[in-house]
Amino acid sequence: MNKKKCSNPMDIQGIEEWMSQFFTDPFTSLLDEQTFRLDLFETGEEFIVEAELGETISTDEINITVNKEQLYISILDGNQVERERRRTVVLPFSIEKKKITACYTNGILEIKISKSTPSHLSSRHITING
């Protein structure tokens, strides 16, 4: 007799595995007051990092730096008694020699990392267009 194997919605091991994966995911939306939400997208030409910062932030308060395969985003929020929020995005390859552009509009910071266009700079600060 051929019986179908059905997944049990109350399978504790599966739930524990999912919860562990969910809470260790750096892009999860459960955040504290010292961080912000990030999303990572990929197109044929570039990788796109979107950060939800809120509309009360100005481009002067945003700092983006690159070092090897890491992208650092920090915000010094002057409206919140000089509180700093930061995130680090670690990619599985070096991005320091890639062309990187950033734009901040309507509370969303969008960082584009070109897959093919090189940059002649190494460790560097990224200018934000607003």
Rank of each mutant, 00 (worst) to 15 (best):
A102W: 09
K112R: 15
Q80G: 00
I126A: 06
V81G: 03
S58H: 05
L71S: 10
S116A: 15
R83H: 05
V66R: 01
E69W: 02
E42C: 10
S29T: 10
I111C: 09
N67F: 06
M1L: 14
V81Y: 13
E110L: 13
K115H: 14
P92Q: 01
D11A: 11
L76T: 02
I95Q: 06
E84H: 05
Q13H: 07
S74H: 08
S20G: 07
E84K: 12
T117L: 12
E96W: 04
T65G: 12
D77L: 02
A102I: 09
I73W: 06
K115L: 15
V89P: 06
E16F: 00
F36W: 03
F41L: 01
W18N: 03
V89E: 02
S20L: 07
G44S: 02
I48D: 01
K97G: 11
I128K: 10
Q21S: 12
S114E: 13
S123P: 05
K5I: 15
G54C: 10
N8T: 03
E33G: 00
T101P: 14
T117M: 10
L30H: 08
N67M: 12
S29A: 11
I126R: 01
K4Q: 06
E82C: 02
E52I: 08
I108E: 07
D77K: 04
N2W: 13
T28C: 11
I128W: 09
I64L: 15
T127H: 13
H125C: 09
T35Q: 03
L38I: 00
I128Y: 11
I113K: 14
G78D: 10
L53R: 05
N67R: 09
E17D: 11
Q21G: 08
H120E: 07
L76N: 10
L91A: 01
N63W: 10
E42S: 13
F27S: 05
R86T: 01
P118C: 13
K115N: 14
M1I: 15
G54F: 04
Q34G: 04
V49S: 05
K5P: 04
D39K: 08
K4P: 02
P92L: 01
L38A: 03
S114W: 13
Y72F: 12
N129H: 11
E69C: 03
S123C: 12
E45W: 09
D32W: 05
D11G: 10
N8Y: 08
I48V: 06
D11V: 08
E110V: 13
F27H: 05
L121A: 08
A51R: 01
E52T: 12
D25G: 03
F47K: 13
D77W: 05
F36C: 06
E46D: 10
S74D: 14
I64N: 12
S20N: 09
K97M: 11
F22Q: 07
I128L: 11
E96Y: 09
T56Q: 12
H120R: 00
R37A: 06
I15P: 00
L121M: 07
I95V: 11
M19K: 01
S116Y: 14
Y72E: 05
F41S: 00
G107H: 07
T28N: 15
E61A: 05
G130K: 12
V81H: 13
P92E: 00
E17Y: 00
P92Y: 00
